[in-house]
Nucleic acid binder design. Sequence first.
DNA 1: CTGTTAGCGCATTCAT
DNA 2: ATGAATGCGCTAACAG
Lengths: 351, 351
Amino acid sequence: MIKPGSHPTLADVARKAGVGTTTVSRVINGGHRVSPHTLKRVHAVIEQLGYMPNQAARILKGERTKTIGLVVPSIADPFFSSCAEAAQEIARAHDSLLIVTVTNNDPHVEMENLNVLMRHRTDGLLLAPANYQSEALAEYLGRIATPVVTFDRPVPKTGVPSVVTDNYNGARLATEHLVSHGYKRILCLGGEPTLYTLRERLRGYRHAVEEHGLPVIIDMSVKDYKSAEYAIESHLATSQPPEAIFTLKNSTTIYAFETLQKLKVAIPKTIALLGFDDFELAATLRPSISVIQQPIEDLGRIAAEILFEQLLPAKKGKHLSGKKRQEQVKLETRLVLRHSCGCNPTQEQNG
Amino acid sequence: MIKPGSHPTLADVARKAGVGTTTVSRVINGGHRVSPHTLKRVHAVIEQLGYMPNQAARILKGERTKTIGLVVPSIADPFFSSCAEAAQEIARAHDSLLIVTVTNNDPHVEMENLNVLMRHRTDGLLLAPANYQSEALAEYLGRIATPVVTFDRPVPKTGVPSVVTDNYNGARLATEHLVSHGYKRILCLGGEPTLYTLRERLRGYRHAVEEHGLPVIIDMSVKDYKSAEYAIESHLATSQPPEAIFTLKNSTTIYAFETLQKLKVAIPKTIALLGFDDFELAATLRPSISVIQQPIEDLGRIAAEILFEQLLPAKKGKHLSGKKRQEQVKLETRLVLRHSCGCNPTQEQNG
DNA sequence: CTGTTAGCGCATTCAT
DNA sequence: ATGAATGCGCTAACAG
């Protein structure tokens, strides 16, 4: 070994094999135009030295880094980790690595992460923006050369392609369903009204109830279990308590369920429940919870696919991909009927 | 712009600012030993050009890549995604990026991932090995120069440090508790007996029941809901059906719960249930499920901390860290008593 | 304080 | 079929 502790280099291999560096380079890049004999010996030396090409040197030569960056609010969140898994799979299929960074929904941290990723020259970026409506982000994305695809939440006023769930129609679907059960007073429960997804869902709910001439009852004060409990208790104490609750997100649905359970309010008899976004044990709870299901893996998968689509043409030296894929992809939701909304479906697959 | 479409280089900045490359280099590395005036101008040019240092070039100079690799069976799995989140946080604190790869528990894919990561010269590796007992992996890890820390599962016969849950004692704790309730026939239910974690838990269960002179009833045939249902029905049909079930993992616990619920077997009256590993709605189900809880985030966090601990000394040029941290860290579990085991605890925090 | 210069490991002409 | 030489962008000696 020439430099103990360090990795052997292409030159080390060349020396040991008694050939030129060019030859070794050819060998590790497919072995074309190399005599079988040399090929064999070089391979042997590579094996023996445990040589692995240094990606950095290749990058420096202008090659792609074979990495893409993923920027999400959280990776512990099942929603984003599912997206991440799908994205990782696509990346792997394209011989690329996925670098994961988390923002905790903090625009400042997000910007920092983007900068670090740019320094590493990731070939592309997959982004679930922390702050819908951020001018700084829009400006930043317009400035950088790296292809970006956002998912779950778009960045408005930018040409950045995005893959999102059709939150608006999903919420409409949910609300319409509750209406069809005959419920008149439908409470829409949620939190963090600044989030794009929740705003869209809220809009869907509002339009649906308004169209049916029903009262708009919205409570966006839910931040945790406590606030959910407080909110629901307040609405129950009203002279005209709600007959159904449409919860805008996962955690809210669970808080609502727990609260109703604790207060011994019969679901769906006294109050029906329907939530946006499915969750693991929704079918196992009693009663089972009806939900609007969004194609989570598809979000990550399609976003990654679009990203790599933008990456490929560059290889051929083409100027721009001729037919630009539509700027925003909207994925449809699915209404999963279980018992909490008042339905009585036949047993689901998994209990 | 000198090269449209490409990133501006340090030399570009130097030229435009009318200074030498060294000066620019100094500026982007803290700005020490540079006159305030020059500093300001260079900063201005950097801003104007949108210059970002090329990480690859730095790496080539022998610097660290500021990246660590994470190799896990799945990132969609809440267990590993929680570890990943913790690891990401530590990485970020050390100004590093986390590259995530998933193996699907396939040793071949795992090896491939490791190779790719080595090519990218990640400073270190966090690994949850796919296959306990793999000779090839042990050999590989012994050969590479990069520091590695495994978590959740160790790689035996290797000096590779690992951070694992004390699965053995956790299972003992669980079993002892069921015994203390007076149950005599305790069924241990699980699957994939090749996994390190499950073997350890199985061992803990076995020792505990044997010590109490109780029958060892093990069924490792659970792979999915169907097989769980079949297994449980079989055991119920016995002349001496079990009085309690100890499930070895998350999903098995849920399958068991669903099956018992479907069969209208009263929990814990007819059969008690206690599972290894907590899950989100364990406290919300009725009855709530008692579990052995493992410190999931700690696994990822501590593994990452140990990794960076090994990385730091190299910076100072020291030969080896003097006091080697103990090779294997074992994290203790916690018994969380809810209703399914027969306990009647006071209400938990969150319902 | 500042500039010049020599590599880091590799792919790539251009010769041979 | 092979090799010598060049340069990618940057940092660190080493002058000034």
